[in-house]
């Protein structure tokens, strides 16, 4: 058993860069993200018996991290604190400095999405998971993944000013989750 948990520890170490990236898409800032990863690591190690041989360790860890984030956000809400990202434009990654001041950063745009859209955008568009994998992690049907993803995409295109045809996407879909085909 010791060998197994050692192995899991090393697998987690190997996945830390991706876990940190996913946490960053969820929380929007480095401190909360790393705290979240820390919580997820501890939970994973204490629940290693839940790890299934037939599903990737990465999906399992993403799921733990995502659930930890939801728990954390709830706890913060209970304390009447806003789970807000850092200064939205702060992390614009443009070393050339050519970014116009009125262009919102990718991070800033993502931070403005509703939580359930942000997590699916993080899993599918940033982490590159399939809809099915994302659905398993979020514990929702694939149809919910696609509808949330579509709305998240539309909102991001509008915020980033990259809608293929201007007005279409801006009014095409509601911002709420009301139509989820659950």
């Amino acid at each position: 058993m010791k060998a197994l948990s050692e192995d899991l520890g090393e697998q987690i170490v190997g996945l830390l860069p991706r876990l940190r990236r996913f946490a960053r898409t969820l929380t929007g800032n480095v401190h909360d993200a790393d705290d979240l990863v820390h919580i997820a690591i501890e939970r994973a190690l204490s629940r290693s018996e839940q790890l299934r041989a037939d599903s990737p360790v990465s999906s399992w860890l993403f799921g733990i991290l995502r659930n930890a984030w939801i728990d954390e956000a709830r706890a913060r809400n209970r304390r009447n604190r806003v789970f807000a990202p850092e200064e939205l434009g702060e992390s614009v990654a443009d070393p050339s400095g050519h970014q116009h001041a009125d262009v919102i950063s990718v991070q800033g745009a993502l931070a403005r999405l509703p939580d359930e859209q942000r997590e699916v955008v993080g899993l599918v568009l940033v982490e590159g998971l399939s809809y099915k994998e994302a659905a398993a992690i979020m514990n929702v049907p694939v149809g919910t993944v696609t509808s949330r993803l579509a709305r998240g995409r539309d909102a991001l295109q509008v915020m980033l000013g990259t809608s293929p045809d201007g007005t279409h996407a801006a009014h095409g879909r509601p911002g709420t989750d009301a139509q989820d085909p659950r």
């Binding site: 948990s5 899991l8 520890g9 830390l16 991706r18 990863v37 501890e42």
Partner: peptide, 18 residues
């Protein structure tokens, strides 16, 4: 984010049981 050094505390946490 992938190119950032991973904080030592996270690596230590992952290896905590080993």
């Amino acid at each position: 984010v992938l190119d950032e050094p991973v904080p030592d505390r996270l690596i230590a946490a992952a290896r905590a049981t080993s």
